[in-house]
Every structure is written in C-alpha cells, then in structure tokens.
Design a protein around this nucleic acid. Sequence first.
DNA 1: TATCGATATATGTCGTACATATGTATTTGA
DNA 2: TCAAATACATATGTACGACATATATCGATA
Lengths: 218, 218
Amino acid sequence: MSQVDRIEINLYEYFRNENFVPGDSIPKEVELAEAMGVSRTAMREALTRFKTLGIIESKKNRGMSITQPDFFQNMNRILNPSLLTKETMQDFFELRLVIEMGIVDLLFIRKTNDDLKKLENIIEKEEAAKSKSEKLKLDIEFHSTLYQISGNHTIERFQKILMPIFDYMNHDLHIRSQEENEDYISHRVLLKILENGTAEEFRMNMHKHLIQYFEQIK
Amino acid sequence: MSQVDRIEINLYEYFRNENFVPGDSIPKEVELAEAMGVSRTAMREALTRFKTLGIIESKKNRGMSITQPDFFQNMNRILNPSLLTKETMQDFFELRLVIEMGIVDLLFIRKTNDDLKKLENIIEKEEAAKSKSEKLKLDIEFHSTLYQISGNHTIERFQKILMPIFDYMNHDLHIRSQEENEDYISHRVLLKILENGTAEEFRMNMHKHLIQYFEQIK
DNA sequence: TATCGATATATGTCGTACATATGTATTTGA
DNA sequence: TCAAATACATATGTACGACATATATCGATA
C-alpha cells in the first residue's frame, strides 16, 4: 500500500468524522499536508482522486469544498465501448430492458395530464414521419419521455448514459419492421393503457413492445 | 479549462486512437509528458485521474497499462450516505424496486433447477428462523439470490452496492409485520410461481410482496 | 547450472519556486 | 462621498530537480 493510499483513507475518515455536507469548505492543501506530515505533492495526488470522484472540487483561489458526488459523470468518462468487454456490454443492454420494465409502477404513480399530452404529441409526429431516421429519433424520444415521467432523476440520467451502448448494440441486431411483426404493440397502444389501463396491463404490453430485444437474451 | 484538463482530453483521444485493449502497456510518464510538451507533474495528475477511474493501472517498475474500468468500484468509494442528498437516496431506493420488478423476465429465461433448490433451501431456513435479525438476513439472501439467478453480473454487483442505502432508508420506515399485512405474499408463493407460473404472475405478486415499499413512493 | 547480487529503470515521494486567478484592501479621481 | 481603478495577498496550478523504492534483467560467483 502506497503513501497516497494511506492518505486517501485518512482523508476519507476525516471527511466522515467532520460531518461535512456539500458546500462546506475544507482546509487548504498545505494545512492538510502538514497535519498528516506528508508532502504537498502526495496530498495533492490524494486530493486529485477525490476531485476525480467528484467528492471535492477546487477553485483557483477560493480553496476546496465538499461537493455532491456524481456517479454518472464518471460513468460517462469510462463507458467507452471499446474498453468494455462484450459481457459487460450485454449486461448493460439487459439492464436497460430491466429498467424499462421496472419503472412502470413509477409511471402510474407519477403520470400527469401534461405528460400524457407530451406523449400524444410525440406519437402524432411519429405517425407522420416519413424517414427511418426521423422515426428512430421519435422512438427514442418516446422512451426518454417515459423515463422523465418516472420522476426519478437518477434513473433518467442513467438511461441517457446507457443510450450509446444500446445504440451500439443495435447495429448487430436485425430488427424486424412493424409489418413483419404480427402482434406489434405500438406506442399509441401503450399510451392508451397509460391513460386508462393498469400497471399490469402496461407491463405486459411493454414486454411485447420490447419483445425483439428480449428474444436476443439467452 | 486548465492545462491538466487538456492533457486528460488528449490522453483520452490517444487511448482511443491507439485501439488499446485491457492489458496493453502504455508509454512511460516522461515520454508522455515530453510528447505533449508538458511537465511530468501535470501529466501525472492527468494520469492519476485515469487511475482513479480505473482506466489505467501502474506498477512500481513495470510501467502503466490499460485496464478494464470498473464503475462499481468507484461507486463504492462515493456511496457515503452522509454525502448524498435525500433526493438521490430516494432515487436509489426507487431504483432498487425498479430493478427488482424488472429482472423478472431474466429470471424466467435463466432459472435452473439448482436455483430453485437454493431458494427452497433459504425459505426453509427462513420459516424455521426464530430471531428477527436472522429472518432479515435470510430475507436479504432470498432477494440476493434472485439477482444471482438473473445471470447479470453487472446488476448483481449493482444491487450489492445499493444494499447499504436500502438498509439505511429502512430505518426510517415502519414495516408492517406479516401478521399485520392482510394479503402478504410470502417467498414461498413467489417460489411456486417461479417454478410453475408465468412471468406476468410473478411480477404481479412481486409487486404485492414489495407493496410496503411502493406505498412509500409519492 | 543455479543462485545470489549488482544495476538499470519506471513509478512514488519530496521540496522549492513561480504562475495564475480571485478576493480584499487601498488608492485615486470626479 | 462614492465609484472605479489599482495594488496586494492568497490558494491552487504548473514546473523542475532530486532522491526513494520496488522490480526486472543481466552478470558474477560458487
């Protein structure tokens, strides 16, 4: 274990014991370094780790302060498809489906009339859309809106970050067109159920709507 | 934008262009620094960021190499309840419910006889358990096993990390005992459905099983 | 030939100096 | 008197040079 590792642990302990909340400012580098009897260099490296994790932030002269860490910001930095194994990619692919099926209860708890109108609006554009790319764009917008309606910002951001992966994996899939698909469930049907149906109905039909993706899972 | 920020971006570009895969070794610090015309100090700080994110790793003399980043490892370092806002905590609380409802399809795709036996085993212990703490432990084990059965390692790890949060929030909840709860769905019922029922049934009953948590959501 | 030891090497740690941005105090001018 | 411009102090950011330390490689010795 290196010096910096020890410093990191000590700092972490220190932050917890002091009961810092986001916004609180912390002692300056030299003070921390002296207090722990280490060089400013080593202390800075430990601090850099915390900065990278989003636990602290520093401004040129104002010193450093505790911040609310943001997982998904980091996730963005590391979710480079070329660096992920195929298995992890597949996992995230499935996770998207899991979330999409799982948020249904939240939708029924939190839906508002405005939300329904918004979906209606998207569907209308979708039905009028000519080009394939435009349809795809509106398809994504529909599902993104569902995440919004869930009212869970964390999940919403999560989905935004997972999107590129889903996109990336889509290239390998042969997606049947609506015409080829006997019992295709359209967005309009989903909206009707969200308006007048139950969560159970919605889940069943969402599953059918996503059936082509589920078929990929073995 | 600071010098180090620029270096980070450049490095990121460089890594991508070189098509590195985990295990590949990268040039040494001084070479990278010279190549970009910056000091070793600044380069090291940028490298520290990547090390923190788990994109590269360094060994004392062997130099540095690309590694498979591990998002959840970082998450562990960050998930300090005292540093999270109440809203984010609530979000994660909900996310757990979302995943639990969403993995049902994976369960039905991937369940094996061994899995069912394992669940049966847990339930038997649970029914024989006397103390409250032991029951709680087995309750957690039951649900953890479901995550295992989902066959999705990413989700499984995700759940393990979210557990402390869920635990933490549980303290604030008044959980009705089974006796107080009219139509409580037991683990045994869930297992029966997993054995002989359908995914839809399972979801409906899982929702009832978790009803007390869903009632917390507004 | 096998084992031990010297050496070279790349990261880790240290100290110092200076750059830069920013908040605060001071001076200047109307 | 007050506002604007200026100077100053301060904390982080960047740079350089030196040494510590772990480890791989090669060479010497028994």
